[in-house]
Amino acid sequence: MEQFTPPPGEAERVVEQYGDMLYRLCLVALGSRADAEDAVQDTLLRYLQKAPAFASREHEKAWLIRVAANRCRDLRRFRLRHPHTGLEEVAGRCAEPGDRAVLEALMSLPEKFRVVLLLHYVEGYSTGQIAPMIGRTPSAVKMRLQKGRKLLEQAYGREEG
């Protein structure tokens, strides 16, 4: 039976390349530093064990985001948490004080809006690209973006006010 070992240095490479991106996605999705670490760990373990051959780095990144998003969803269900905003765990991480308000506004939203807002405005994905990552249709993603943007504006206005 053929044995596969990840190439030496692969763990370092994937953490260096994707660690921060996955961490902020999971932290925004879960609102908890400990949970985010678990989700990132599980995602990268699965990557090292089961990742398919990738056509490009973009393909690889999209695969990781999809796995991480699924993992966050599983963690939320398994741990029977109600939406937990974890404001301080997320907002407390920002370097610029002025950014705290927008992060607090983001974390005040339900999780389903936070994730699509992050994937669109921060990672730059279109609704068509986001849809398979989170297991929804493009139209559902578009609706979440529209509503999420509106809710974020309202929440941000309250934070600034």
Binding site: G19, D20, Y23, R24, L27, V28, V40, V90, R93, C94, A95, E96, G98, D99, R100, V102, L103, L106, L117, L118, Y121, V122, L152
Partner: peptide
């Protein structure tokens, strides 16, 4: 600002 704030989050 949202982009900058979120990207400021690092592991």
């Amino acid at each position: 600002r949202l982009n900058r704030a979120v990207r400021g989050i690092r592991m």
